[in-house]
Amino acid sequence: MTDTRTRDGAGTAETSPPGREAAPRARFTDLLAAEWIKLRTLRSTWWGLLVSGLVVLAFNIGTAWDTYRYWRPGSDAAGYIADGIPLYHAFTTNGATVLALCAGAFGALAVTGEYTSGLARTTFTAVPARRPVMAAKVLVLTAVTVPFGAVLAAVSFWATQAVLHRRGVGVPLDHPGALRLVVASALLAPVCVLVGAALGALLRHGPGAVFASIGLLQLLPLVLTDDRYWPALLDHATVLSAWVRFSETVYDPADFAQPWSVGGAWTVFAVTAVVAGLVTVAVEHRRDL
């Protein structure tokens, strides 16, 4: 039936002018809350994080299990630890590669999902100030993936070392380089999410942004040699190569044609995250939808 009742509180048509136009306060916290609602009400958010977390753990724990299973009696446990191998197992390069892939895709789709569904038009009609919207999105994505990465890296460390401990080669968190590796692995997720988000904002196209993210995060370090100065410099500036530096806990510059520092690797993480975040916030302004 046709609904003819007047809205509660709106009063009669003749006496009260419609609309609450008077005082719309523009609070950034409202945008943060809205983006949080958007992220948490998509089932794919939680499934995506859960599945990628489990796959990464499977890679890392699987490698530790392999070592445990095929451990030759009488092997040199002290030498094994001295070479830093238990920490290679704490978070494997394979695990980091898969994590970067998943996190990049997660960030890309979190942004492009809004365009491909048309929701962006609804969002930006309601909030014409686009930069605060994108800033809120960046902050919410970061706020979700930092704890995700932290739990993942912590569980991975604890589980792999527990497995290795059965052969006497597990190391504690205060082992040299251990905490640093765990922190870097935890931050790998948000950094890659931000890279994916920036590419999503630039391209506004889901598959395109995912492929671009794979190209930037995975393929680029793969094709760059680290034997000569410039390719090595570029290689070391990629997120995954920076992470690899953290996993080299027993580091001897003599082993490398182009040595690099832990400080440099932290800088790569920080600069990448900040630049990606700024790109995501900046590109949307004034574009046609």
């Binding site: 136009e21 719309p24 306060r25 523009a26 998509l42 569904s117 609804t122 309601a126 014409p128």
Partner: peptide, 25 residues
């Protein structure tokens, strides 16, 4: 409209029926 920070209480719009994410309620 672009000069406003928030617009929901100024103008309501239905542009395309699909302008919502299919994964949300």
């Amino acid at each position: 409209l672009g000069e406003r920070a928030r617009a929901l209480t100024c103008v309501g719009a239905l542009l395309d029926a699909g302008d919502a994410h299919g994964g949300r309620s």
